[in-house]
Amino acid sequence: MIKFIAVFGLLVSCSETQDIRPVFALFHSFELEGSEPIWMARAKVTVDALTHNPSNRTASKAMISIESNQLTPEERRKVDNLALSGKRYQLKAVDTSTGHHVIAYTYHADPLQQTLKLSLDPSGFLEGVTFLPAGREQVIVDIMQLAPQPETATYIQRMDHERREREKTQGQDNRNFFAKYWMYIVPLVIFLLISGAGNPEGQ
C-alpha cells in the first residue's frame, strides 16, 4: 500500500480563504508499444481539505487519500526486468482539474520503492513530478511558495525620487574645458601646425 505525506510552505497569493481539493491520476509504464509507452493506472491521489487563510499567511495541514492499483505478479516481474535490461520506468501524473500532465522517469532498480514528489503551485495545480531516493514515506506533496511581493507604494515613491534626481542633474555639464570644446580646439591646432610647416621662412 502506498503511503502519503504532505509538506506545505506559505501561501501568499490568495485574496480570500480558499478550500482546494486537487485530484491527481497517476499512470505508469514499464513496457512500450513500438516507441510509445503503454500507460496503466497506478493510483489516484486526492488532497482533501487544503485550506489557506491569507490573514495568518499559513496553510493548514491537509488530509490525503489514495486509491491504489496493486500490480499483478506478471506486472511486478516486468518492473523488475527494467533495471536488468537498462530500460526506464516512467510515471505520468495528470491534474484532473486541468488535464495538464507531467511525466517523470527513473532507472532505479526498484522504482516502486522510491519516494515520489508532486509539486503544486500555490493554487494547488500540478507543476512537476520528481523521483527521490527511497525514504520513510513513498509520496510527498509539496506546495510551492511565492516570493514576497514588493510594496507598490514604496516602489512608486522610490521611482519618483530617482526621477527627480535625474531631472536635477540634467543640463549640468561637469566636464573640463577641453572635454567640452575639443571639437573647436583640435581643428585650430591642426591648422596652426600646417601653417607653420608650410611657411618655415617666417620662423
Rank of each mutant, 00 (worst) to 15 (best):
G34D: 06
E137T: 15
E67W: 02
Q203W: 01
K168C: 05
E165W: 01
S35R: 12
E201I: 09
K117Y: 05
E33A: 14
D142N: 09
L91G: 05
A197C: 07
K87Q: 15
P200C: 03
Y155N: 14
S85W: 03
S35A: 15
V79I: 10
R88V: 13
T98D: 09
A153Q: 11
E127H: 01
M159F: 10
T115D: 03
A147F: 07
F191W: 15
D121M: 02
E162H: 04
G86D: 06
P73T: 13
Y105G: 05
P187F: 02
E33V: 10
T58M: 12
D121L: 02
L112C: 07
T106F: 02
A109E: 13
G135R: 04
N69D: 11
V94G: 07
L11W: 00
R88A: 11
A109C: 04
I140T: 05
Q90P: 00
P54N: 12
G128A: 09
F8T: 13
I190W: 03
E33L: 09
P200Y: 02
A179I: 07
D110H: 14
Q70C: 11
T96Y: 00
M63R: 13
P148I: 03
P133A: 13
F191Y: 15
G171A: 08
E31V: 09
F30V: 09
P73C: 10
I2A: 11
T51R: 09
G99N: 06
L188K: 06
A83S: 07
G99F: 03
R158P: 00
T46D: 10
W182A: 08
G124N: 02
Y89M: 06
L11Y: 00
L10I: 11
G124L: 02
R21A: 09
S15Y: 05
L188I: 13
T51C: 08
N176I: 02
V129C: 08
A197D: 04
L192P: 01
L71N: 04
P200N: 05
A147E: 15
I103E: 03
S97H: 09
S65V: 11
N176H: 00
G135D: 06
E36R: 15
R166V: 11
E162I: 13
H108P: 00
P187C: 08
A134E: 13
N81P: 03
N53W: 10
L116G: 02
